[in-house]
Structures are given as structure tokens and as C-alpha cells.
């Protein structure tokens, strides 16, 4: 499977944008400009970007508490995302959601979700809508290893398989369910093996290889668009940072393990691969990074210049008119 140079460069740009966005979000969170809680996706960028590269704008996705990567990979606007983290009126949710609840329905991003496995049934409903509509759209559920142990995962996949819904279930297995070693909570070592119980394809993919993720997603998307039903893709990956950015949290992960996974950096790996193929020069890569950093600086400036919502707006949008 070959993608055009332009498409691959865009994928690299998207991955690096996620990383730079979160580095900045973490800094600004530590500085007190971003409130509550921030969960970083750094280290897992290849999953969101690889899957979303196989999607069209009108395909739909749902995300998790660790949602910045999925938003950006689906094409969300940096300014409105950063402004939401900053709690501003110009944010995606007018300051009502924050990091854990960013959505952009206009690009098929049905929202980050603060409940583990909570989004899986919802996006399965988007899959049902796509099937009823009959225009070949697909829907993608991103979730973690932790969610794969919860009822909504099993209930939703059973329904999707029974009704042949055009769905991708993408498990980001980063080996830890918050602070717990995932292997201690999983009956099988591979989440993908659970697909057999529902009679659907289940594949394990190197989640730090964006092209491998893309190829697996592309095959599953083709299958879904052809009316052959859902697939389960398990992407083995790793988050470089703690469960959240809150300082002083216990982290059970050995330093050597974190270091080992940092050596498998999905971005560096992809950039090197593109460079080796002659598709990217060092200079162009540096320039891209500079552009990304500038765009993020602009997003911060936009956020800082944006007003906080009028406190009275707290009682708006409870119901649609």
C-alpha cells in the first residue's frame, strides 16, 4: 500500500502537532493557565494519525479521556482546542468541557469522554446511523486496554457484529490501565484475541508504526464500507508520561521501560523512514517543526486574548432549544 508523499508528510505533521500541542499544554497546566486535569497522548501519536489517515472527513470517531491526539488527527482546530483547555469562550465547548471533553461534530469528532468505555456504545450508535444512512460512512471507537475489560466494550462489539455495523474498534494498549499493569487485569495477553468471541477480525499492530496502523485501519475501513461489519484492531503502544500531568502521582512503571519505549519513538521512526526514502530532508523536517511550534504559539496567544465565558453562561445549553 502506498500513500502519496504529500499524505505521508501530512501524517508526520499531524503526529508532531499532537506532540508539540501536548508539550505546551503540559507546561501551561503546570503554570496554572490550564485547569483540572490533562492526560497526555505523547508516545501514542501513530495510532490516532494512522487510523484517521484511513478516514474521510465525514467518518466519525469517538475518543477517551486522553483525547487531544484523536481530535487533532481528525482535523480539529488548534486555536479552539487550546482555548478550550484555557477555559475560554472561544473554545470548542465554550469553556464547558476542558481537556477531557473536546468535541467537534462538524469534523465527525464525537467527543473525548471521561468515563472509561463510556464512548464505545455512543460511537456504535454513530455506526448504526451510518448504516441507516447507507452512504458508506464508518465510525471508529478509540479506547484503551482498560476499557476492553468493561461491559460496554463487549456489549457494543456484540451488537456491531450482529448488525454488521460499519465500525472500527481501535484498542490503544499502552500496557497500563491508569496506574495498574494491564497484564494483571487481562485474561489474555492480546485484546485482539477477543474478536474471535464475536466472529470479527482482530489484529495486533505495532502501534508505534504509523504505516502499519494505517494499513490495518485501511483494511478494516474497506471491509466496513463494503458492509462486512466491524473489526477490532489492537495497537500495542506506550505513553511516555504519567497517567495525568498532575505532579507527584505514583507511577508504577520502571524507568528503564519508559526509556526503552522512548527509543521506539513513533515520530522519529516515521521521520527517519521518510528521510531514508528521500521523501523528507532534515531541513524540511526542521522547518515543519518550526511551523508547528509557531502555530501552537499562535493558539496560545489566541487563547490568552480570548475572554472567559460570562459566568451567567453556566446556565445556558442545558437543553437544545
Amino acid at each position: 500500500m502506498t500513500l502519496t508523499r504529500e499524505k505521508q508528510i501530512e501524517m508526520l505533521r499531524s503526529m508532531q502537532t499532537i506532540r508539540r500541542f501536548e508539550e505546551r499544554a503540559s507546561d501551561d497546566y503546570q503554570a496554572g493557565a490550564i485547569y483540572g486535569v490533562v492526560h497526555c497522548y505523547i508516545g501514542e501519536e501513530a495510532v490516532a494519525v494512522g487510523v484517521c489517515a484511513a478516514l474521510n472527513r465525514d467518518d466519525q470517531i469517538i475518543s477517551t479521556h486522553r483525547g487531544h491526539g484523536h481530535c487533532l488527527a481528525k482535523g480539529a482546530d488548534l486555536n479552539r482546542m487550546m482555548a478550550e483547555l484555557y477555559g475560554r469562550q472561544t473554545g470548542y465547548c465554550k469553556g464547558k468541557g476542558g481537556s477531557m471533553h473536546i468535541a467537534d461534530f462538524s469534523i465527525g469528532m464525537l467527543g473525548a469522554n471521561g468515563i472509561v468505555a463510556g464512548g464505545i456504545p455512543i460511537v456504535t450508535g454513530a455506526g448504526l446511523a451510518a448504516q441507516l444512512e447507507g452512504k458508506g460512512r464508518v465510525a471508529v471507537s478509540f479506547f484503551g486496554d482498560g476499557a476492553s475489560n468493561a461491559g460496554p466494550f463487549h456489549e457494543s462489539i456484540n451488537i456491531a457484529a450482529t448488525w454488521k455495523l460499519p465500525m472500527l474498534y481501535v484498542c490503544e494498549n499502552n500496557l497500563y490501565s491508569a496506574g495498574t499493569i494491564a497484564a494483571d487485569t487481562l485474561a489474555l495477553s492480546d485484546v485482539a484475541a477477543r474478536a474471535a468471541g464475536y466472529g470479527i477480525p482482530g489484529v495486533v499492530v505495532d502501534g508505534n508504526d504509523v504505516m502499519a496502523v494505517y494499513e490495518a485501519a485501511e483494511a478494516a475501513v474497506s471491509r466496513a464500507r463494503a458492509g462486512q461489519g466491524p473489526s477490532l484492531i489492537e495497537c500495542k503502544t506506550y505513553r511516555w508520561r504519567g497517567h495525568t500531568e498532575r505532579p507527584g502521582q505514583e507511577d508504577p512503571r520502571p524507568k528503564e521501560e519508559i526509556e526503552e519505549w522512548r527509543q521506539r519513538d513513533p515520530i522519529n521512526r516515521f521521520a527517519t523512514n521518510l528521510t531514508d526514502q528521500g521523501l523528507l530532508t532534515e531541513e524540511a523536517w526542521q522547518q515543519m517543526d518550526d511551523e508547528i511550534l509557531a502555530a501552537i504559539e499562535d493558539a496560545v496567544k489566541f487563547s490568552e486574548a480570548s475572554p472567559f465565558p460570562d459566568p451567567e453562561a453556566a446556565v445556558e445549553d442545558i437543553f437544545a432549544d
Partner: peptide, 28 residues
């Protein structure tokens, strides 16, 4: 049978499915 579906006895899933379909232009 497309518009009138018997679900598994899994209320959590089909309640969530309704939410997602509603957010995608349907009226479950």
C-alpha cells in the same frame, strides 16, 4: 427491520447507541 430492532438485553449499550445515533442526525 432496519428501523425497528430487537437489541440484546444490554441496556447500557443500546442506550449509548441511541445517544450516538441522535448526535448523528437520527431521532431514536
Amino acid at each position: 427491520a432496519d428501523r425497528v430492532r430487537a437489541t440484546p438485553i444490554a441496556e447500557g449499550a443500546f442506550t449509548g447507541i441511541a445517544i450516538g445515533a441522535a448526535g448523528s442526525g437520527y431521532r431514536p
